[in-house]
């Protein structure tokens, strides 16, 4: 177990990193807010992929559901942001929970394919329901009230940055706590050997459904944040390509470690930002190469690489 100061330091890392990035890119706060939101989504993906050990290519379904729910909520119900976040998280959790009942009976390739199919069904429904969702044009035309009635959303993304960073911090700290609870330990045990947990009396199916629903709720939260800060929701937020992209971020950073999700998102989005000028075809080649190289040569991603270097420098064995 980590000592008390290390734990506190770990909790403070997110705001510290946020401040450092703010100092480095003072004029790009909207971009930094985007990174924070994506990091929340990738953290939620890590719950499913890294901690529960389930390979999914449909995680964007919950992100998109949260984004559309928050957008529609702001448009038709109330444009207060915090309740909007709750609406988004609920939408993500409902989509995840309902599909998990079906998904968690399958495994392997069938599971993977069903996650893709579910997100494509959702994509088709949203794209057909033009009157409600705007279809291909996206959902727009909603404005948000100030956060807590005090801080106004601005054109430069100043508030978006602080708002997203705060939510990311809360999610990260809570997830760190969750991982060491009996529930978190059981989920990891199921990943390592589901059969054994089952024969010891653990409820494999129920734990998987719960962790998937929780993860969906967090993904929905990220979607709601994205809808509120950008004030447009596009169909691409539901696409399989986006699911694959966040999976690449997670793998780049390292699965099964919350740090991995943060590092992966940061590195990937910064590279993407600078590589925006190269055409999408080459970008795709680049992503593909990253995936192949990491799987073949550095399973565990960048954070494992850092751990290996650290172990080599201090002369200890890698964890």
């Amino acid at each position: 177990m980590t000592s008390f100061p290390t734990r506190i330091l770990g909790d403070l890392a997110v705001p510290l990193a946020g401040l450092i990035l703010l100092a480095l890119y003072p004029s790009q706060q909207a971009f930094l807010a985007q990174i924070a939101i994506t990091a929340i989504l990738v953290l939620s993906l890590d719950l499913v992929v890294g901690f529960a050990g389930l390979a999914t290519l449909g995680h964007a379904a919950m992100f998109g559901a949260g984004a559309y729910a928050a957008g529609l909520y702001a448009l038709h119900v109330w444009s207060e942001p915090l309740t909007g976040l709750i609406a988004g998280a609920l939408a993500g959790a409902v989509v995840a929970g309902a599909t998990a009942l079906m998904l968690m009976r399958a495994h392997g390739l069938t599971f993977l394919m069903m996650t893709v199919a579910i997100s494509q069904v959702l994509y088709e429904i949203v794209s057909k329901a033009r009157d409600v969702t705007g279809g291909d044009d996206g959902l727009f035309g909603f404005t948000m009230q100030p956060v807590l009635g005090v801080w106004e959303f601005d054109f430069f993304g100043k508030l978006a940055f602080w708002y997203s960073l705060a939510v990311l911090w809360i999610v990260f700290v809570l997830l760190r706590r969750l991982m060491v609870t009996p529930f978190g330990q059981t989920v990891r045990a199921i990943r390592d050997d589901a059969g054994r947990v089952g024969s010891l009396g653990g409820r494999v199916y129920r734990h998987r459904v719960v962790v998937y629903t929780l993860s969906g709720g967090i993904a929905g939260l990220a979607g709601a944040l994205s809808a509120q800060t950008v004030q447009v929701v596009g169909l691409s937020s539901l696409s399989v390509t986006y699911s694959a992209e966040i999976l690449v971020m997670l793998v780049l950073g390292g699965t099964g470690r919350l740090w991995g999700a943060l590092v992966g998102t940061l590195v990937f989005t910064v590279i993407h930002h600078y590589a925006a000028s190269i055409d999408p075809v080459r970008w795709m080649l680049f992503i593909g190469l990253i995936l192949v190289v990491i799987v073949l040569f550095l399973p565990g991603g960048l954070t494992r690489g850092i751990a290996l270097i650290h172990a080599w420098l201090t002369g200890r064995r890698a964890p």
Binding site: A244, V281, R282, M284, L285, I287, G288, L289, I290, L291, V292, V295
Partner: peptide, 8 residues
Amino acid sequence: GLVFIGIA
């Protein structure tokens, strides 16, 4: 990853 490389 191979799919992405193939597409590109």
